[in-house]
């Protein structure tokens, strides 16, 4: 039963990494296809469809992560995995709430801001990105450290490098999220880096999964 939980947990986290790769590729496409004017109807349509698709994907990734770390939490190997699940569950919700609250506040103060979303000159809008970046990142910090722990447990170098890169990417994510609106190359680079990280983690988790299948390397429970 425990092996099944472990297998399922890693399988779900692996799935989340797979969808993350697709999500990042869509992110790159959105930047490339970004409409150049309000009359660029085809691009606006394409970007809107991709945007909706990426929203659905981000929700899917989030659910897979919660399920995956939920299975690992059930193993009772470490409390940290349970904290990871909790952090992944709560912090994105807090981030979203912060975003909504700041948006509403900004809108009530000056409704015209909504029509001229200029992140460069508008401090309030930069504040939205600031809080969102912090809140969203905390859950991912927990996850990257938990993956790092798994890499130590299973002595998997690919997973270890992937988790270190993941942690690094999360730490520098505010730079990307606060500047991506005006520096599109930075946004593309951020997404490309995310693809590499997810490939590393996906590959590492696949190797870990294999060891579980062959039942050769399996942690004892405390």
């Amino acid at each position: 039963m425990m092996a099944k939980h472990l297998y399922n947990g890693i399988s779900k986290i692996k799935s989340s990494e797979f969808w993350k790769i697709i999500f990042s590729i869509i992110g790159i496409l959105i930047v490339i296809l970004k409409p150049r004017s309000l009359f660029d109807i085809i691009r606006i349509l394409l970007v809107s469809i991709l945007g909706i698709f990426s929203m659905i994907l981000s929700l899917t990734i989030w659910v897979f992560k919660i399920l995956g770390w939920g299975y690992l939490c059930k193993l009772k190997i470490k409390n940290f995995y349970c904290w990871t699940r909790l952090a992944i569950l709560i912090f994105p919700i807090l981030g979203l709430l912060a975003m909504i609250i700041v948006f509403i506040t900004v809108f009530l103060n000056n409704p015209s801001y909504i029509y001229q979303l200029n992140f460069d000159s508008n401090k309030e809008l930069r504040l939205i990105l600031f809080f969102t970046a912090i809140f969203f990142s905390v859950g991912y910090i927990f996850e990257s450290v938990a993956i790092y722990d798994l890499s130590i447990v299973y002595k998997n170098k690919t997973l270890k490098y992937g988790s270190i890169m993941y942690l690094l990417a999360v730490v520098i994510s505010p730079i990307i999220s606060m500047n991506s609106t005006r520096n599109l190359y930075l946004s593309i680079l951020g997404n490309m880096f995310q693809v590499v990280i997810s490939l590393f983690i996906y590959n590492g988790l696949s190797n870990v999964q294999k060891t579980i299948i062959y039942d050769q390397q399996y942690p004892r429970y405390r």
Binding site: I152, Y214, D215, Q217, Y218, P219, R220, R222
Partner: peptide
């Protein structure tokens, strides 16, 4: 085939 490696308590 039940060669379990002890869980690392390092971290």
């Amino acid at each position: 085939m039940n060669a379990q490696i002890p869980y690392s308590t390092k971290s």
